[in-house]
Every structure is written in structure tokens, then in C-alpha cells.
Simulated scan of single mutants.
Amino acid sequence: MSDTPHLLIPFAASPSDGCQQALQDLALPHLDWLLARLPPPATDPGDETDFIPPHERALARHLGLPATSRQAPWAAWHQRQTGVTGADGDGGTAWAFVTPCEWRVTTEHVTVGDPAALRLDEAASRALLDIVAPWFAEDGIVLAYEQPTRWLARGAVFEGLATASLDRVIQRDVRAWMPDALQARLLHRLQSEMQMLLYTHAFNDARAAQGLGPVNSFWVHGTGSLPPAAPGAATAAPPPEMPTALRDAALAEDWRTWRAAWQALDSGPVARLADRVAAGGAARLTLCGERSALTWQTGPRGFVQRIQSLFRPQRMKDYGTLL
């Protein structure tokens, strides 16, 4: 387990035109100072269509969690950390996160709204869980409350099932991110049943009376299982510092707020990391975009690396197109 401080920044850049424009005159002096002095980065290349975004892959590697571009068993990992077993389970099968959400259907798009915008509290989430849990149970899926916008689910259907991260679908057309139609046919049917059940349900009538949006579907993510833990196995590494302000602004495509969030990061966590490096301390920095991730780590630089540093990008705006 490494004690090296790790700053992992999701949505440090995006290929969208708005983001690329915002990067051009974005002043990040502490970050640029770091990039000019750290050894060349390790690259985790990917694609915008990967189900698992770069920041989740980077976090998984940090924690020693098996993850690919198609699957990251976050729910199984979370279950192992917390010991939650569900209604009658023993934790021995595959797990998933189920997030209640609103699907906005038009003739051209089926868009997933941000679950945070639903303003579900624990009482409402548990009430909704009681409504839908019997339907899931009929298909061998046991649900357990975990937080207002995330439930734990246990069932054989999640074994080996590739599902897209929630960060891939928020405010986007869900049809591009649906799991395999054959392997997930049970879940597709459940989603259709939940839309019919909740469309005219008293639960949503009560929400409408309060001026709240409807909950009419769900998103499954973080699917899969983990190998059995060895007796006496070491605990996972502590999580890195992982600010979410850039993520929140990027998912809303609010690039003015995104710029302000970057400047706050630069004067806060990035500046602290730069101070540590300046003092000779160890540090690790990972910048993640929608396609790839770049990781810098302190270490001795040989003559070749010093020469290479003269010819590689040394400012954030130059790395923006790589992420």
C-alpha cells in the first residue's frame, strides 16, 4: 500500500467544443508548474464510447479493483467493504448498483436526467424501494437500500454483465449505453415494467404535488463479482483525493462553472501538491478526460527524461486534446 498522496481529477478535459474553447486561455499556474517538473506521464488510452470512464478505471487501479473499459464491479467492492448482504443474501453472488432516475422520452431521444436533481431523501427512496422491490424479486434480484439515489442489488444476471457508468449517461441519450440486449433482456423488461408501473403511480402523483420531477425508471451500473477474499488479506489502499466539481459542471455542460472549478482546484489541492513536490516530497497526479487518463508520479529523472521534458507538453491546455 502506498502512502504517496494521490490527486485524481475527473473531467479535467472534454473533447466537446465548449470545453476545448474554455481551455485555451485558462490560467492554471500551479498545475503548469507541476507538469513541467514531474516525469513524463503514464497513459491509460481509451475511447469516448467505453462503458467505464477513465477516472473510474484510474480509481479502480488505485484500489486494486479489477476493471476494464467495459466493466468495473463497484457494487461488489462496496458490498465487501460494508458487509451489506441484502434481504437474505450471503454476498456470494454478483452485485450491481441500481439508481432510480427520470428518463425523458421524445421522438428523437431518451435522455437520463441527473439523479441528484430528483431531490430524493431517504424516506422517499425507501418508499420507492418498497414499491419496486417485489418486481425485482420475481426475477431473482434482491434490492437493499444504500443511499437515496443508489441501491445495492444482488443477482445472477449481473455476473459478467457490462454496464455503463452513471457518469456516461447523465444528460445523454441512454440508447447508446444500454447493456447487451440478449444478456440483459431481463433488465430491459424490468425497465419497461417500471416505466408502466410508475407512470401513473401515487408515488409520482405526490411528487408532482410537491413540484418534484417523476421517477420513472432506473439505471444499473457497477456490475460484476469479485474473487473470494483471502483470509487475512490486506485492506484496500486509502482512496485518493478525488474532487467532483469539474465532473458536476461538465455533465451539465456548464463550461463557465467548469473553468471556475478548475481555478479553485489549482489554488487548492493542486497548489498543495505542488508545495509538496517543491519540498522534495512524493506525489501522484492523475488527470482524466472522457477518453484517457494521464498519471504523473514523482521519481528520479534521468538525462533522457530531462531532455524529453523539453519537448513534451507542459501546460494543461496542451494536454486537453489527449484526454
Rank of each mutant, 00 (worst) to 15 (best):
20 Q>R: 15
105 V>R: 10
41 P>Q: 10
145 Y>Q: 07
100 P>C: 06
72 A>F: 01
185 R>P: 00
66 P>T: 06
199 Y>D: 15
23 L>Q: 10
61 R>V: 02
304 V>A: 14
180 D>L: 05
86 G>D: 05
158 F>E: 03
254 D>Y: 08
171 Q>S: 12
224 G>D: 03
305 Q>G: 09
86 G>L: 06
30 H>W: 04
250 A>R: 08
24 Q>C: 03
14 S>W: 00
92 G>F: 04
245 A>C: 11
29 P>V: 00
245 A>K: 06
285 L>T: 11
243 P>L: 08
61 R>H: 13
68 T>M: 03
112 V>D: 01
300 P>D: 09
1 M>Y: 02
64 G>F: 01
275 D>M: 07
221 H>F: 02
60 A>G: 01
119 R>I: 01
35 L>F: 06
262 W>I: 03
173 D>C: 11
316 M>R: 07
240 P>R: 08
13 A>C: 13
40 P>T: 09
178 M>F: 06
186 L>Q: 14
87 A>Y: 04
218 F>C: 13
207 R>A: 08
110 V>W: 11
66 P>A: 05
27 A>I: 09
91 G>T: 10
153 A>Y: 04
75 A>M: 02
287 L>A: 08
163 T>V: 12
135 W>G: 09
153 A>T: 04
295 T>L: 05
77 W>M: 06
270 V>T: 11
298 T>Y: 04
75 A>G: 06
185 R>L: 06
82 T>I: 02
106 T>H: 05
50 D>R: 04
146 E>Q: 13
288 C>Q: 07
101 C>Q: 13
244 T>Q: 15
8 L>H: 07
18 G>P: 11
6 H>K: 06
219 W>T: 06
280 G>F: 10
9 I>M: 08
260 A>N: 12
250 A>I: 07
290 E>P: 00
34 L>M: 07
211 G>N: 09
184 A>V: 05
40 P>R: 11
86 G>P: 07
84 V>M: 07
58 A>S: 15
196 M>F: 12
239 P>V: 04
260 A>C: 05
239 P>Y: 02
167 D>L: 02
237 A>H: 01
307 I>S: 08
215 V>M: 12
279 A>S: 14
92 G>S: 14
148 P>L: 07
290 E>S: 10
193 E>M: 12
294 L>N: 01
275 D>P: 00
310 L>A: 14
24 Q>M: 09
215 V>A: 10
19 C>G: 13
265 L>Q: 12
306 R>W: 02
